[in-house]
Design a protein around this nucleic acid. Structure first.
Lengths: 202, 202
DNA sequence: GTCAAGGTAGCACAGTGTGCTAGTACAGTG
DNA sequence: CACTGTACTAGCACACTGTGCTACCTTGAC
């Protein structure tokens, strides 16, 4: 039962933390709060997650790993902003978190920045980047079609959202106070609300 | 001597805090540390600066005003969005363009990403980053005071704008189709409009 | 003199993250 | 069977954090 116990305890912590984030995206995820919520001692929590940062990053990774199906953008039963945020999260997901994010970025840096990139590398990046923007544009088109998003320059909007995504992914690599976990969701919604024309308010 | 006492005590605190920042830009400016350094009790510090944030902002404002006067943000003869965009451009300026941007980024990369950063480096970046956000927040406060910007969570708004700035500065380094400059302005205005609550449309 | 402010000192409280130790359950091994 | 090492848990202790509160002391006005 050791294995089951280990899983169940670690999972209980993660579930508790994720739930707390779900209830309040700005939740602090403090040691004692999460431990109490999970019905676990602080020591046990420390055992599974040696540092608080580690816990928060794991939770964040968990949120992003819940992949939604591609056609999720069409699901009108959910608010458009939620759907769009989910899609953007999917774009952001490969960036990873913590150490993973760092090594992922190192590759990008190596290929496109460190040495003045070759024309070939440049072209490769451009098509990749353009593909990302087109993808975002496609999602926006869906929302426009269903009337949720006012007709307008979706290319421009996609460009804007893409910039926000880029900023967020870099902030995952650079040092941060607590994990981006608490702030990232807020920023994503702010960006989406800006595009959807709703009052941008945190 | 009341006036002199008040000034000297308040000033001693500010001087102590500024000195600590000078010695170590990553200083945390905690209540007890500053109080001890200024030769003052924590209670006295609390009296002059009811909240710790207030102290930190005052110190930062003092430092910033020496470096760069930001009068332009007050110029009501120009639209608020233009003024704010200008200020953000100023933040973005040190990032440079083209080759300059590349080498500037290389330094950041070297210090904070390439090697897993030391705790010291981490802290240094954090205070730098925080200072930037506070600066943006200060500008937003001006707009709130003059009634242009609806009262709200300016900290959150600053966080959002900061993310956009980060994204733009990286996009200056990464390969781009045409000059980023044409699209950059549009993105900046989109972000600013999002914060100002105007219909976000380029 | 009396009184009220303005300012100071310093403790108390509720938090925070992390380290440490004692104890438990269980697998593997003699 | 006993023994041992490992995985895990519980819970306290420590050194911090920011803030509220009370007691005390000047100092100036009346």
């Amino acid at each position: 039962m050791t294995e089951q116990q280990r899983q169940s305890s670690r999972d209980r912590i993660l579930i508790a933390a994720a739930t707390m984030i779900g209830e309040d995206p700005a939740a602090r995820l403090s040691v004692r709060a999460v431990a109490a919520r999970a019905g676990v001692s602080t020591g046990s929590l420390r055992f599974h997650f040696p540092t608080q940062r580690e816990l928060q990053e794991t939770v964040l990774a968990g949120i992003y790993s819940m992949v939604a199906p591609d056609d999720d953008i069409h699901d009108r039963s959910r608010p458009a902003r939620d759907r769009l945020v989910d899609r953007l999260r999917q774009v952001l997901a490969p960036a990873g978190v913590g150490e993973q994010a760092r090594s992922a970025w190192l590759k990008v840096h190596e290929s496109f920045i460190a040495e003045r990139p070759t024309e070939e590398a440049r072209a490769a990046y451009l098509t990749l980047d353009r593909a990302g923007r087109r993808q975002i544009e496609a999602w926006l088109a869906v929302l426009t079609d269903e009337g949720t998003l006012a007709p307008g320059d979706n290319e421009q909007r996609a460009l804007f959202l893409n910039t926000v995504i880029t900023g967020l992914s870099i902030q995952r690599v650079l040092p941060a106070e607590d994990t981006v976990l608490t702030t990232e969701t807020a920023v994503l919604y702010a960006a989406v609300d800006a595009v959807l024309g709703e009052p941008a308010q945190g």
